[in-house]
Amino acid sequence: MPRQKRAIPEINAGSMADIAFLLLIFFLVTTSIDSDKGIAIKLPPKPDKTQVLQKIQERNIFEVLINSQNQLLVEGEYMEVSALCDAAKLFISNKERNPELSESPDKAIISLKNDVSTTYGAYLQVQNELKRAYNELRDEASRAKFGVAFDDLVKGSEREQEILTMYPQKISEAEPEDIFKD
């Protein structure tokens, strides 16, 4: 019997589109472009026994206390969270040279103290407001000096550094022992 030459059957490519489409939908669903955002904080290093305590003038300390009811006590007075940013800005910059506020922005220190049962949400709220105060001050300084927003300055540039030394962010948090004591 003579062997017939058989034609190679063609692969049906009609369903290719369907398969690709299905895969596309699968990846669409599983993809999660998780953009992680947050407030960056630098913790102080481990307390050193040999550390010498610096004396800081009372006027340079901006005291913020958060109690267990998430209420604020700023410089000995009750305050709403919404007013904190402006109060902090006023304290740090002290443009009117008020003798009760900070000597200069780079000497200003914010002291933050919270209770054990303060909620994290409220705590972060306060952190956010303080950060906002600094960000706004830096932005103002940058606009006045260079005419551009602080965010638009080149990262690591001299100009950025200049603003950062003008307004260093000094937020000091109380050691837990001090919190739990009272």
Binding site: D36, G38, I41, K42, L43, P44, S82, N128
Partner: peptide, 17 residues
Amino acid sequence: NALKIVYSANKGKSIGT
């Protein structure tokens, strides 16, 4: 000695504003 931390938060309106 892991001193750099980030409090993860959504970008958005906070109670203060």
